[in-house]
Simulated assay, not measured.
Amino acid sequence: MSDLLEWSEKQALENLRFHIQTAEQLAKDANATLTLLLAGAGGLVAYLVKLLESKADTVWLAAVCAFVITLSVLSATLIFFCIKTAPIAAPTNEPKNIYQPSFSLSAIREVELQNIQVRIDQVARRNMRVATWLDYVRFMAVCSPISPAAVGVLCTVLGLA
């Protein structure tokens, strides 16, 4: 029984550490995506200032504004769902929880193995949520030129040019 318990503990901790490492990679990817979105929005704001100085057509102003707003909303979505600080399970338990002299070591280890499974499930759910929203934001970033094009067409149709 001890060999099985020892092997199970080792595998469980390895699995939890893998999920924590995945969470770190997702955080890096989300930050890189945010950097690109903010750089794009910043460049568009600079372009918008140039358009305002040159008294450009309303169509161009509206389209660039729509693009800036789209990238800003995507950035906010990314921050809220992927980058916002959230708790993550530690690989091991706190000493106050595992030091229980009134129980046998094997009983404590068996309970702790169940606790590790709970932490694995928590981190895996967190990773899935973050990965899903990161994918949504990336896809919407690829589709983001649609909004300024639609605004430009709408302005043209309404005769605001």
Rank of each mutant, 00 (worst) to 15 (best):
119 R>K: 14
43 G>S: 05
127 N>G: 12
107 A>R: 12
7 W>R: 13
15 N>W: 15
12 A>M: 06
151 V>R: 00
160 L>G: 02
137 V>A: 02
63 A>Q: 01
96 K>H: 11
25 Q>M: 13
2 S>V: 02
158 L>M: 08
159 G>Q: 02
50 K>G: 08
102 S>K: 11
93 N>K: 10
129 R>T: 07
125 R>L: 08
91 P>F: 07
122 Q>L: 09
152 G>H: 00
136 Y>A: 04
109 R>V: 05
64 V>G: 00
142 V>E: 14
111 V>I: 15
136 Y>K: 12
158 L>I: 01
38 L>Y: 03
64 V>F: 02
105 L>T: 09
24 E>R: 14
48 L>I: 14
101 P>W: 09
3 D>C: 05
82 C>L: 03
17 R>W: 13
138 R>S: 10
10 K>P: 05
150 A>T: 04
25 Q>V: 06
41 A>F: 13
86 A>K: 15
72 S>N: 02
149 A>M: 12
153 V>S: 06
15 N>P: 10
1 M>D: 09
113 L>P: 01
154 L>D: 01
159 G>L: 02
99 Y>G: 00
9 E>K: 05
124 A>C: 11
37 L>E: 01
20 I>E: 10
156 T>I: 07
55 K>I: 02
105 L>K: 12
44 L>D: 01
48 L>K: 05
92 T>E: 05
18 F>Y: 14
26 L>S: 00
80 F>N: 14
66 A>E: 00
62 A>D: 04
85 T>I: 10
8 S>L: 10
137 V>S: 00
6 E>V: 15
143 C>S: 11
153 V>K: 09
65 C>W: 01
148 P>Y: 10
18 F>W: 13
143 C>F: 11
41 A>P: 06
126 R>S: 03
101 P>A: 15
83 I>R: 01
110 E>R: 04
8 S>R: 14
118 V>Q: 14
127 N>S: 11
67 F>P: 00
125 R>V: 09
76 A>W: 14
132 T>G: 13
67 F>Y: 11
58 T>W: 01
33 T>S: 14
118 V>D: 15
5 L>I: 08
85 T>Y: 09
132 T>K: 12
17 R>H: 10
160 L>R: 05
118 V>G: 11
77 T>C: 12
37 L>P: 01
148 P>T: 08
75 S>C: 06
63 A>Y: 01
50 K>L: 07
92 T>I: 13
45 V>N: 04
1 M>Y: 14
113 L>T: 11
13 L>W: 06
160 L>K: 09
24 E>K: 14
100 Q>L: 13
130 V>D: 03
73 V>D: 01
143 C>E: 08
91 P>D: 12
83 I>L: 11
146 I>M: 07
99 Y>E: 05
104 S>H: 15
161 A>H: 04
27 A>P: 02
66 A>C: 06
54 S>L: 08
101 P>Y: 10
93 N>H: 12
142 V>I: 13
135 D>Y: 13
100 Q>Y: 05
125 R>K: 14
45 V>Q: 04
13 L>K: 08
69 I>V: 15
82 C>P: 03
128 M>Y: 02
